[in-house]
Design a protein around this nucleic acid. Structure first.
Lengths: 163, 163
DNA sequence: AGTAAATACTTGCGTGAGCAAGTAGATGCG
DNA sequence: CGCATCTACTTGCTCACGCAAGTATTTACT
């Protein structure tokens, strides 16, 4: 945490560069998610939310994750995750399996069908991300940018994500 | 535009640093807007969407902007903007005024009440943005970060924003 | 063992936003 | 001058999501 440099005065007006950054970030936050989702829908018939869930499940050991964990890695509320998994389940891309060591826990498990779906969809996602984002950035800058974004930690002591 | 360096092969898999960047950005995009909105609602009783509209109107010459322009600067669809302005109008913070030089155009105009409301709310917004974002970043990095974000241009030839 | 509290997940409900279709006014063309 | 087209905005519809409340199961305390 690179704070504690200046005295705690949270109400200093934004400098010009701060202002510029906040607006640029706001623009990306408002427009980029839907742009990628639109690409996914049009070219792969798979919403970004479902793609993301499948992707994380496919990367998890055994292809399964607790609802909780899945929600966290997808940056979704638990109830939102429930619905995404419902949709995926109806399509046969995941199954729910009771958690062995905790009777109230459930695992979402990718099916082979789900993996196949993912396989079919990833080029679209990749192309979208490249076209909207990475094509416009200098690879040299990425580590620094990533580091900066990782320091932005929303939800620390403010409102919060489901119950 | 720092592209045209490598041949047009949009399907190269993501490198590790690209992957990291995309995930970090995804996290911020998913979580930050609601975090700030929650702060605004809790501490200023004014949603971020309405705050943003008032802010842009207050900065515009004459305190008015065409629905069109307002939607653009707020990064909102035109129909979404219609509803935000409806809400603001009901509260007396803006008025609609017919556009002189174009009979089908409407201006959203901030009222004095609206300006007062903005005046009351900006400290909350400022604190939220500082707490969630700027406190965690090195001011030295801001120009570079802003520049990078500005190069990310969503919606170029993909789906798009209302009709 | 038995009850109270915490946890894991789902469901009910409300809200905000985009798309598509509708309306009203402007522009162009014959 | 009249009709077709285009533009600016609004409204109908749908949907995804978060929050709060509900259910089931585990943990903690006595």
């Amino acid at each position: 945490m690179p704070s504690a440099e200046r005295p705690p005065s949270p109400l200093t007006p934004l400098s010009a560069s701060e202002e510029g950054f906040v607006r640029a970030l706001g623009r990306v936050m408002m427009l980029l998610p839907r742009a990628v989702d639109t690409d996914m829908l049009r070219d792969a018939q798979l919403p970004l939310s479902e793609y993301t869930a499948l992707m994380h499940l496919s990367e998890a050991p055994g292809g399964h994750l607790r609802m909780n964990e899945l929600a966290t890695v997808c940056n979704l509320s638990l109830s939102g995750m429930t619905r995404v998994v419902n949709r995926l389940e109806k399509q046969g891309f995941v199954q729910r399996a009771k958690c062995d060591e905790d009777g109230r826990g459930w695992n979402a498990v990718v099916t082979d069908q789900g993996l196949a779906r993912l396989e079919k969809a990833w080029p679209t996602h990749l192309a979208s991300v490249r076209r909207h984002v990475l094509d416009h950035l200098d690879p040299e800058d990425l580590p620094r940018l990533t580091d900066a974004l990782r320091h932005i930690v929303p939800g620390v002591g403010s409102g919060g994500r489901d119950a």
